[in-house]
Amino acid sequence: MTDTEQFPVRVEQPDRNGGNIFSRVFDELTAFCRSRSLFILHYCTGCGAIELPPAMTSRFDMERLGISPMVSPRQADILLITGYVSVKTLKRVMLTYEQMGSPKYVIGICSCTVNGGMYWQSYATAKKLNDYMPVDLYIAGCMPRPEAVITGLRQLMDKIAAGEANGWEDYYRRYDYYLGHQQRLFGETWQTPTDVIAEARHYGLFGPETLGDHTRLLEQHQAPLEALEMQLGLGAPDEVKA
C-alpha cells in the first residue's frame, strides 16, 4: 500500500469558525453527505481503469460506500485519472475537470499520474498531474490493486468529511498558476469553454492569484463565453430588411 501523504497536495484551509451553530451543523451534515455520496466520473486515460470494475462489483462493492459511477462530468464528484496522461488527453481532462460541479475531487491512480511513471521519457505525456489541476489524492502503483483503490477512496471520504478535500477551491483561487502550466504545455492560444474566472467571481472564490500574467494572456484571445440570456428585443421596430 502506498503512503499517499508523501505527495503534497496544495490545499488552502478556509476559515471554518464563522456562522452560527445551525449553519455549522448544517455544514457538518452536508459534508457528511458529500463524503457518503461520491459519483465517480471514470475517465479512463490509461491501464489503471482495469482495476475499477473489481472495485465496483461484488468483490469490493463500492456502492456500499455510496460510491457509484457516473457518465457526464456535470453529474460527477470525483475525476479519476487512471493512468498516463498524454498531452492530447490532458486537454480533454482539463475540459472535463472544469465542467464538473464543485466540490470536485481529483484522484490520480497509478504512478504515471504522479511522475510520468514508465513514460517519464516520453515527449507526449504530462508528468505531474498536480501542475495542471489540484489533485486531492494519489494512489500510486503500477497498477494499484482494488484494495488500494478502495482504501484510497476511503481516505478521500475521511478528508471530505473533515472538510479537508478542498483542492477544487485552489483551482479557482490560484487559477493563474494552473493556467500557466497549461499554457506552457498546450500553447498560448489554449482556452477551454468554461470561463473559470467568471465562475470564481460568481461563486465568491476569487483569490489574489486567480488573475495574473497567464490569465491576461488568455484574455487577449478568449472568445466571449457569456450565457445566451433571453432577449426580448424591445425598443424601436427593426429597420426593415430590404
Binding site: 477551454t192 470561463d195 460568481h202 466571449p224 450565457a227
Partner: peptide
C-alpha cells in the same frame, strides 16, 4: 447557487 453558462460549455465527450 447556479451560474448560467454559454451553450458551448457543454458535455461533448471531451470535445472542444
Amino acid at each position: 447557487r447556479s451560474r448560467r453558462v454559454h451553450q458551448l460549455d457543454n458535455y461533448a465527450g471531451g470535445h472542444f
